[in-house]
């Protein structure tokens, strides 16, 4: 079997293993809050499929620094993101990974701690100005316990990766 045939056969069977659709665009008043070093991020709870601790990261060639490699989630390769590299240009070893529910891609976000699920009134969530540097990868922000929490935009993260990979 040639590599092209293997690729074709794997592509044909891939759709069967997809997880269900997730609407990560829709802003909810309920957020799943997690830490990456000192940074706090949030996602809609329904965007997170699973939290897995202690995954080894396998290196990949030619990827931007915020992609440390692949992780093995139940036998499937997932692209690992290091958000601290994106936001602070520093590496952050991940204690656990948030496995996202996405239709088109396998993505896991490294984090150091899973904090809590918070319910917030919509008025306490502010959107970013388009020119805000942090806003490139975020839909909104809110204050929680005196700390700023950034609501991640997964489509923006994936768009950045696509752009960086050319």
């Amino acid at each position: 079997m040639k590599s092209s045939e293997i690729k074709e056969a794997l592509s044909a069977s891939e759709g069967l293993e997809e997880i269900g659709l997730a609407d990560t665009e829709e802003l909810k008043s309920r957020f799943f809050v997690f830490s990456v070093g000192d940074l706090l991020f949030a996602l809609p709870p329904e965007a997170v499929h699973e939290i897995i601790a202690g995954l080894e990261v396998y290196p990949l060639p030619s990827c931007p620094p915020y992609i440390p490699g692949l992780v093995n989630c139940h036998g499937q390769p997932y692209t690992a993101f290091d958000l601290r590299v994106l936001f602070e240009n520093e590496r952050q070893p991940a204690a656990m990974f948030l496995v996202l529910k996405l239709e088109q891609d396998n993505v896991a976000i490294g984090c150091t701690e899973v904090n809590e699920i918070v319910d917030l009134p919509a008025s306490s969530v502010s959107t970013f100005a388009a020119a805000d540097a942090d806003g490139r990868f975020c839909l909104a922000m809110f204050d929680h316990g005196g700390q700023r929490v950034l609501v991640l935009s997964i489509p923006q993260l994936l768009a950045q990766l696509e752009q960086d990979l050319g």
Partner: peptide, 26 residues
């Protein structure tokens, strides 16, 4: 078995495919 070989995540596939990396197996 073919199913033990896994294509790379979709976002990485094109770029790494050009480098010759097609799939992985754990």
């Amino acid at each position: 078995p073919l199913h033990e070989l896994k294509l790379l995540p979709a976002g990485l596939r094109k770029r790494l495919g050009l480098l010759g990396l097609v799939a992985v197996r754990f």
